[in-house]
Each structure stands twice: as structure tokens, then as C-alpha cells.
């Protein structure tokens, strides 16, 4: 069968060459050869990609596959392990503690987005467009972003304390509100939420500010001449320009807040009770504290998948609506 095909194509090629040249000295050449002549293959590109492949393999691929490996085994000791299939995944999805942490984290992310996005945009709109105060405003706004996460946690851990913290003391003794984040779960939640708002709203503000700065002055002048109000100017001129950066800001803030770990770990350690034990806090407790590598592996993979899927959905939805 294959022989026959080759014969047929070979025959056709010959016939054509003969017909074209009309008995001339045209050399019958093979098609693949000619293509190779026209476009020489260069495999050196692989060499250039190799460092990336190697580093990604070592830093991401192998660790991830190790986690996959853990997630399907019950490990008693390095030499004593049994394959359990999807058992850990089933256990993790049914675990009430993990479920509660999942809902808690989701609620936290939703609150973070609800506060930080409008607040960041409002700050960006209020920031000066030119002059001396631009640099001052930029430095002041960017300051929280420059502080390492665990330091942010430490700052707030002290700041919010009712006895020696400036914030906590003021609330208790000046405003007369009973506030203690180490005992009251609502207070703890609020402390972590406000800390996140303080830390990350500047990111939204800076992204939005960059987009707003790119709007040429004549747009604002035209709106002024029309007699448009500040709100109308924002709705019609500024907000449409923010669509792109807000997509990115929402994505970043969702992913970051959904994976929040360092700051609540430093401030509350997940407490009081389970009040601020988000998924990551719980995960580290299972993995590093209890050393349950199997469930932790399954948990990690699910966590990873959730972040991936939600981000993908977000991105698709937000970029689609732009068209």
C-alpha cells in the first residue's frame, strides 16, 4: 500500500518535470530537498531556551510533581509509604475545617476587593495631576508597598494592641470602644482586613493613577466646556480608561488576598480560635505543623487549581466585556 503511493507520487513528479522542461536538462529534484534549501533549519534556538527550561524544571516543575507524588500516597516514613489514590482529595474536600477556611478566605477576598478597588480608584482620582505635589503624593501612597510583608504584620500587631498599640489604645481609651483583636474574633478579622487595605490599596491606586495620567488634558477641558459635573467626567472619561488596569488590579488583589499568609500569621496566628485561619494558614499548619504530607499535598493542589481557575474565569470575563 505504501509502496504504491510512493510510486504514484514519484511517477507524477516525473511526468510534470518532463512536461515542463520539454526534454530540457531540468533536473528532477525532490520536493523536501527544495524546501530545505529555501528555509534552512536552525536548531540552535533550543540552546537559548534551555536555561529557562532547566530553571523552570528545577524551581517549579519538580517541586510541583513532588507535591503530586505526596498527594496520592500515605507516607509514614521516607521508606514506608503506600499508594492511596484519590483518598486524600476526598478527605480534604470533606474536611469541615478546610471547608470553613475556604469560605472564610473567599469572604475575606470579596471584602478586600470591595474596599480596595473603589478606594484605590478614589485615591487615584484625588491625586494631583501635575506640579510639586505629584511626587509627594506618589511617595506617600507607595510607602506601604515598600514595607516587607512580615514587617507590615509586626507593625499592625503592635499598632492594634489595646495596651501598648497606638491604634488599639486610641479606639479603647479615646473612642471608648472595647477593642481587643486577641480575644474578639470580629476585632481580629477587622484588624487583618484593615491591614490588608492599608498595605495593598496603594497598588490599586498607583495602577489607576498611571492609567488616569495617560488621559490627555483636552478631554477634561472638553468636559469642562460642556459643563459636565465631576461625577460625569469620571463616568464618561476616566472610568472607561480604567477598565484595563482594573482588570489587572482585581486579578492581582484576588489572587494575593486569597493566598494571604504572612500578615495574619504574624498578627493573629489564625486566631482567636479559627477566626482568621485562612486557607494558607491552615495549610501550613497541616503541612509543617502536623507534617501530614499526603493531605497537605492534596490540599495544595486543590488550592492551586482554585486560584488558577478563578483567575482564568476573571480574566476571560473581564476582557470579554471590554469588547
Amino acid at each position: 500500500m505504501t509502496d504504491q503511493t510512493t510510486a504514484v507520487t514519484g511517477g507524477r513528479a516525473h511526468g510534470r518535470a518532463g512536461g515542463q522542461a520539454g526534454g530540457g536538462a531540468a533536473e528532477p529534484r525532490d520536493e523536501p530537498d527544495r524546501r530545505a534549501d529555501a528555509k534552512p533549519r536552525n536548531n540552535r534556538a533550543w540552546l537559548l531556551v534551555l536555561p529557562v527550561v532547566v530553571s523552570v524544571t528545577f524551581t517549579a516543575l519538580i517541586p510541583l510533581m513532588t507535591v503530586v507524588n505526596y498527594s496520592v500516597q500515605d507516607i509514614f516514613s521516607p521508606n514506608d509509604r503506600i499508594f492511596v489514590g484519590l483518598e486524600w482529595f476526598r478527605a480534604v474536600t470533606r474536611d469541615p475545617e478546610i471547608r470553613a477556611a475556604f469560605l472564610r478566605t473567599l469572604l475575606f477576598s470579596a471584602q478586600v476587593l470591595l474596599v480596595e478597588i473603589p478606594l484605590g480608584v478614589a485615591i487615584a482620582v484625588a491625586m494631583p495631576r501635575r506640579g510639586f505635589w505629584v511626587s509627594v503624593a506618589l511617595v506617600v501612597v507607595a510607602l506601604p508597598l515598600l514595607i516587607p510583608w512580615n514587617v507590615v504584620g509586626t507593625i499592625w500587631q503592635i499598632f492594634a494592641r489595646a495596651d501598648i498599640g497606638l491604634g488599639g489604645w486610641t479606639i479603647n481609651h479615646v473612642l471608648g470602644i472595647d477593642f481587643n483583636y486577641t480575644l474578639d474574633s470580629t476585632d481580629a478579622w477587622l484588624t487583618v482586613l484593615i491591614m490588608d487595605v492599608w498595605h495593598w490599596t496603594p497598588l490599586v491606586a498607583l495602577l489607576a493613577y498611571a492609567a488616569l495620567r495617560s488621559i490627555p488634558d483636552p478631554y477634561f477641558q472638553a468636559a469642562q466646556i460642556d459643563g459636565a459635573s465631576a461625577w460625569a467626567t469620571f463616568r464618561r472619561i476616566q472610568l472607561p480608561r480604567l477598565r484595563g488596569v482594573l482588570t489587572i488590579a482585581i486579578l492581582l488583589r484576588f489572587m494575593d488576598s486569597f493566598m494571604i499568609y504572612t500578615e495574619p500569621f504574624v498578627v493573629t496566628g489564625g486566631g482567636p480560635g479559627n477566626a482568621t485561619s485562612f486557607l494558607s494558614v491552615l495549610l501550613s499548619k497541616i503541612a509543617v505543623g502536623q507534617f501530614d504530607l499526603g493531605p497537605a499535598g492534596a490540599f495544595s493542589l486543590l488550592y492551586f487549581l482554585i486560584v488558577q481557575i478563578v483567575s482564568y474565569v476573571f480574566f476571560t470575563v473581564l476582557t470579554r466585556t471590554g469588547r
Binding site: P216, P218, Q221, A222, I225, I237, L239, P240
Partner: peptide
């Protein structure tokens, strides 16, 4: 009323 060199309209 003002017409600019750039084409200034409400984009949305």
C-alpha cells in the same frame, strides 16, 4: 464650544 486638534469625544 471648543474643537481640538486631537479628536476629543467621550470614548464610552
Amino acid at each position: 464650544a471648543f474643537v481640538y486638534q486631537q479628536f476629543i469625544n467621550y470614548p464610552s
